[in-house]
Protein backbone atom coordinates (compact mmCIF):
# COMPACT_ATOMS: atom_id res chain seq x y z
CA UNK A 1 0.00 0.00 0.00
CA UNK A 2 1.55 3.31 -0.99
CA UNK A 3 0.65 6.81 0.11
CA UNK A 4 -1.09 7.64 -3.18
CA UNK A 5 -3.38 4.65 -2.88
CA UNK A 6 -4.13 5.32 0.78
CA UNK A 7 -4.83 8.99 0.02
CA UNK A 8 -7.07 7.87 -2.83
CA UNK A 9 -9.06 5.53 -0.59
CA UNK A 10 -9.40 8.23 2.10
CA UNK A 11 -10.53 10.78 -0.51
CA UNK A 12 -13.09 8.29 -1.78
CA UNK A 13 -14.29 7.69 1.79
CA UNK A 14 -14.53 11.45 2.39
CA UNK A 15 -16.66 11.85 -0.73
CA UNK A 16 -19.10 9.24 0.56
CA UNK A 17 -19.20 10.86 4.03
CA UNK A 18 -19.81 14.30 2.49
CA UNK A 19 -22.74 12.95 0.50
CA UNK A 20 -24.19 11.19 3.56
CA UNK A 21 -23.71 14.45 5.51
CA UNK A 22 -25.53 16.45 2.83
CA UNK A 23 -28.47 14.05 2.76
CA UNK A 24 -28.60 13.73 6.56
CA UNK A 25 -28.04 17.43 7.37
CA UNK A 26 -30.35 18.90 4.73
CA UNK A 27 -32.76 15.92 4.60
CA UNK A 28 -32.60 16.58 0.88
CA UNK A 29 -31.02 14.95 -2.16
CA UNK A 30 -31.62 17.84 -4.56
CA UNK A 31 -28.86 18.07 -7.12
CA UNK A 32 -27.90 14.42 -6.61
CA UNK A 33 -28.41 11.92 -9.42
CA UNK A 34 -30.09 8.73 -8.21
CA UNK A 35 -28.91 7.02 -11.42
CA UNK A 36 -25.27 7.71 -10.61
CA UNK A 37 -25.79 6.39 -7.08
CA UNK A 38 -27.42 3.22 -8.43
CA UNK A 39 -24.50 2.75 -10.82
CA UNK A 40 -22.03 3.08 -7.93
CA UNK A 41 -23.94 0.50 -5.88
CA UNK A 42 -23.71 -1.84 -8.89
CA UNK A 43 -19.98 -1.06 -9.28
CA UNK A 44 -19.23 -2.03 -5.68
CA UNK A 45 -21.45 -5.12 -5.69
CA UNK A 46 -19.82 -6.48 -8.86
CA UNK A 47 -16.25 -5.43 -7.99
CA UNK A 48 -16.25 -6.88 -4.48
CA UNK A 49 -17.54 -10.33 -5.37
CA UNK A 50 -14.18 -11.55 -4.03
CA UNK A 51 -15.17 -10.29 -0.58
CA UNK A 52 -16.03 -13.83 0.49
CA UNK A 53 -13.40 -15.72 -1.48
CA UNK A 54 -10.17 -13.66 -1.23
CA UNK A 55 -9.01 -12.16 2.05
CA UNK A 56 -6.50 -9.38 1.35
CA UNK A 57 -6.43 -7.50 4.68
CA UNK A 58 -8.73 -6.20 7.39
CA UNK A 59 -8.46 -2.74 5.84
CA UNK A 60 -9.46 -4.05 2.42
CA UNK A 61 -12.44 -5.97 3.76
CA UNK A 62 -13.66 -3.12 6.00
CA UNK A 63 -13.41 -0.54 3.20
CA UNK A 64 -15.30 -2.81 0.80
CA UNK A 65 -18.11 -3.27 3.32
CA UNK A 66 -18.23 0.50 3.93
CA UNK A 67 -18.52 1.28 0.22
CA UNK A 68 -21.18 -1.37 -0.39
CA UNK A 69 -23.22 -0.38 2.67
CA UNK A 70 -22.99 3.38 2.06
CA UNK A 71 -23.89 3.19 -1.63
CA UNK A 72 -26.92 1.00 -0.87
CA UNK A 73 -27.92 3.32 2.02
CA UNK A 74 -27.81 6.36 -0.29
CA UNK A 75 -29.92 4.62 -2.95
CA UNK A 76 -32.35 3.56 -0.21
CA UNK A 77 -32.56 7.14 1.09
CA UNK A 78 -33.26 8.57 -2.34
CA UNK A 79 -35.83 5.92 -3.23
CA UNK A 80 -37.58 5.10 0.01
CA UNK A 81 -36.93 7.66 2.78
CA UNK A 82 -40.27 9.58 2.95
CA UNK A 83 -38.67 13.03 3.36
CA UNK A 84 -35.48 12.72 1.28
CA UNK A 85 -37.15 11.08 -1.72
CA UNK A 86 -39.43 14.11 -2.19
CA UNK A 87 -36.44 16.32 -3.05
CA UNK A 88 -35.15 14.04 -5.80
CA UNK A 89 -34.96 15.92 -9.13
CA UNK A 90 -36.71 13.10 -10.99
CA UNK A 91 -37.43 15.13 -14.14
CA UNK A 92 -33.83 16.40 -14.38
CA UNK A 93 -32.20 13.02 -13.77
CA UNK A 94 -33.05 11.58 -17.16
CA UNK A 95 -29.73 10.15 -18.38
CA UNK A 96 -30.39 6.70 -19.91
CA UNK A 97 -27.90 4.93 -17.65
CA UNK A 98 -28.95 1.46 -18.78
CA UNK A 99 -26.88 2.07 -21.92
CA UNK A 100 -23.83 2.61 -19.69
CA UNK A 101 -24.50 -0.72 -17.95
CA UNK A 102 -24.99 -2.59 -21.23
CA UNK A 103 -21.93 -1.05 -22.93
CA UNK A 104 -19.72 -1.73 -19.89
CA UNK A 105 -20.86 -5.34 -19.71
CA UNK A 106 -20.28 -5.97 -23.43
CA UNK A 107 -16.84 -4.37 -23.19
CA UNK A 108 -16.06 -6.49 -20.12
CA UNK A 109 -16.92 -9.65 -22.07
CA UNK A 110 -14.52 -8.58 -24.81
CA UNK A 111 -11.71 -6.98 -22.80
CA UNK A 112 -10.81 -8.58 -19.47
CA UNK A 113 -7.77 -9.96 -17.69
CA UNK A 114 -9.18 -13.49 -17.66
CA UNK A 115 -12.47 -14.82 -19.04
CA UNK A 116 -13.87 -15.92 -15.68
CA UNK A 117 -17.02 -15.02 -13.75
CA UNK A 118 -15.31 -12.77 -11.17
CA UNK A 119 -12.86 -11.28 -13.67
CA UNK A 120 -15.56 -10.31 -16.19
CA UNK A 121 -17.59 -8.67 -13.41
CA UNK A 122 -14.44 -6.98 -12.09
CA UNK A 123 -13.70 -5.50 -15.55
CA UNK A 124 -17.40 -4.56 -15.85
CA UNK A 125 -17.20 -2.66 -12.54
CA UNK A 126 -14.06 -0.84 -13.70
CA UNK A 127 -15.63 0.29 -16.98
CA UNK A 128 -18.93 1.18 -15.32
CA UNK A 129 -17.24 3.25 -12.62
CA UNK A 130 -15.43 5.25 -15.30
CA UNK A 131 -18.74 6.47 -16.77
CA UNK A 132 -21.00 6.30 -13.69
CA UNK A 133 -20.55 10.03 -12.99
CA UNK A 134 -22.15 11.03 -16.32
CA UNK A 135 -25.77 11.18 -15.08
CA UNK A 136 -24.58 13.31 -12.15
CA UNK A 137 -22.65 15.74 -14.36
CA UNK A 138 -25.62 16.04 -16.75
CA UNK A 139 -27.93 16.71 -13.79
CA UNK A 140 -25.49 19.35 -12.54
CA UNK A 141 -25.48 21.11 -15.94
CA UNK A 142 -29.28 21.10 -15.96
CA UNK A 143 -29.83 22.23 -12.39
CA UNK A 144 -27.16 24.94 -12.68
CA UNK A 145 -26.89 25.88 -9.03
CA UNK A 146 -24.79 23.49 -6.99
CA UNK A 147 -24.91 23.52 -3.21
CA UNK A 148 -21.54 23.46 -1.48
CA UNK A 149 -21.70 19.92 -0.15
CA UNK A 150 -22.68 18.53 -3.56
CA UNK A 151 -19.76 20.40 -5.12
CA UNK A 152 -17.33 19.03 -2.55
CA UNK A 153 -18.79 15.54 -2.97
CA UNK A 154 -18.10 15.54 -6.72
CA UNK A 155 -14.69 17.08 -6.24
CA UNK A 156 -13.51 14.35 -3.82
CA UNK A 157 -15.13 11.69 -5.99
CA UNK A 158 -13.09 12.88 -8.98
CA UNK A 159 -9.91 13.40 -6.98
CA UNK A 160 -9.79 9.84 -5.61
CA UNK A 161 -9.26 8.20 -8.98
CA UNK A 162 -6.66 10.85 -9.90
CA UNK A 163 -4.72 9.73 -6.81
CA UNK A 164 -5.12 6.12 -7.94
CA UNK A 165 -3.45 7.05 -11.22
CA UNK A 166 -0.45 8.32 -9.23
CA UNK A 167 -0.57 5.01 -7.32
CA UNK A 168 -0.42 3.02 -10.59
CA UNK A 169 2.50 5.13 -11.86
CA UNK A 170 4.29 4.56 -8.56
CA UNK A 171 3.64 0.79 -8.62
CA UNK A 172 4.68 0.59 -12.29
CA UNK A 173 8.13 1.89 -11.42
CA UNK A 174 8.48 0.23 -8.03
CA UNK A 175 7.14 -3.26 -8.72
CA UNK A 176 8.59 -5.52 -11.36
CA UNK A 177 5.57 -7.23 -12.87
CA UNK A 178 2.89 -4.63 -12.27
CA UNK A 179 0.33 -4.23 -14.97
CA UNK A 180 -3.19 -2.89 -14.40
CA UNK A 181 -3.87 -1.60 -17.90
CA UNK A 182 -7.63 -2.04 -17.68
CA UNK A 183 -7.91 -0.10 -14.41
CA UNK A 184 -5.35 2.47 -15.51
CA UNK A 185 -6.93 3.37 -18.85
CA UNK A 186 -10.44 3.37 -17.37
CA UNK A 187 -9.12 5.52 -14.51
CA UNK A 188 -7.71 8.05 -16.97
CA UNK A 189 -11.04 8.24 -18.81
CA UNK A 190 -12.87 8.55 -15.47
CA UNK A 191 -10.67 11.42 -14.27
CA UNK A 192 -10.82 13.18 -17.64
CA UNK A 193 -14.63 13.31 -17.40
CA UNK A 194 -14.21 15.56 -14.35
CA UNK A 195 -11.87 17.96 -16.14
CA UNK A 196 -14.39 20.72 -16.79
CA UNK A 197 -15.98 20.26 -13.35
CA UNK A 198 -12.54 20.61 -11.72
CA UNK A 199 -12.02 23.82 -13.71
CA UNK A 200 -15.30 25.42 -12.57
CA UNK A 201 -14.74 24.12 -9.01
CA UNK A 202 -11.30 25.81 -8.97
CA UNK A 203 -12.74 29.08 -10.38
CA UNK A 204 -15.45 29.16 -7.71
CA UNK A 205 -12.87 28.47 -5.02
CA UNK A 206 -10.50 31.16 -6.38
CA UNK A 207 -13.25 33.80 -6.66
CA UNK A 208 -14.85 32.68 -3.37
CA UNK A 209 -18.00 32.49 -5.48
CA UNK A 210 -20.78 29.92 -5.67
CA UNK A 211 -20.03 27.01 -7.99
CA UNK A 212 -21.70 27.78 -11.33
CA UNK A 213 -21.68 25.42 -14.31
CA UNK A 214 -22.54 26.97 -17.68
CA UNK A 215 -26.03 25.83 -18.72
Amino acid sequence: MNIFRFAGDMTHLISVLVLLLKIYATKSCSGISLKTQELYALVFLTRYLDLLTDFISIYNTVMKLIFIASSLAIVWCMRVHPIVRRSYDKDLDTFRHYFLVAASFILALLVNEKFGFQEVFWAFSIYLEAVAILPQLVLLQRSGNVDNLTGHYIFFLGAYRALYILNWIYRYFMETHFSRWIACIAGLVQTALYADFFYYYYISWKNKAKLQLPA
Binding site: R5, D9, H12, R47, D50, D54, I56, N60, M63, K64, F67, E113, K114, W122, Y164, N167, H177, R180, A183
Partner: peptide, 10 residues
Protein backbone atom coordinates in the same frame (compact mmCIF):
# COMPACT_ATOMS: atom_id res chain seq x y z
CA UNK B 1 1.52 -16.78 -8.49
CA UNK B 2 -1.98 -16.59 -7.00
CA UNK B 3 -1.32 -13.29 -5.23
CA UNK B 4 -0.66 -11.53 -8.51
CA UNK B 5 -4.04 -12.00 -10.05
CA UNK B 6 -5.85 -10.95 -6.85
CA UNK B 7 -7.24 -7.44 -7.08
CA UNK B 8 -5.65 -5.92 -4.01
CA UNK B 9 -7.00 -2.43 -4.71
CA UNK B 10 -10.48 -1.05 -4.03
Amino acid sequence: DKDDDKHDEL
